[in-house]
Amino acid sequence: MTDKQKAKAYWKKNLKYLSILLSIWFLVSYVFGILLVEQLNTIRIGGFKLGFWFAQQGAIYVFVILIFVYIRLMNRLDKKFNLDE
């Protein structure tokens, strides 16, 4: 592979990771925490209504996990394409 092809393949893979992770980001905050909040609120976990829990707790936990997953994925990708420093 030439450098140019390599960079292109690397970028394509990066965009794929981004679209998957950002879909989850959208799902836990905008869908679970806002759009479907009433429906989810009929489900209860302990003292929490589920929709309310996502809006005030769950979404934040998922955000943290998403970033650390991305860090791992990209570190591996950097190694694979020999683009790490």
């Binding site: 981004l18 992770l21 950002l22 980001w25 905050s29 925490g33 909040v37 309310f52 809006a55 005030q56 979404a59 934040i60 955000f63 998403l66 970033i67 991305y70 860090i71």
Partner: peptide
């Protein structure tokens, strides 16, 4: 949040979710 309850969630999600955009984009 104490006064507005669920409505206060906009700050919780809004001021943390931005970091996902920062880290990824």
């Amino acid at each position: 949040i104490s006064f507005n309850g669920y409505d206060g969630s906009v700050y919780l999600m809004g001021w943390t979710g931005g970091y996902v955009l920062l880290a990824l984009l």
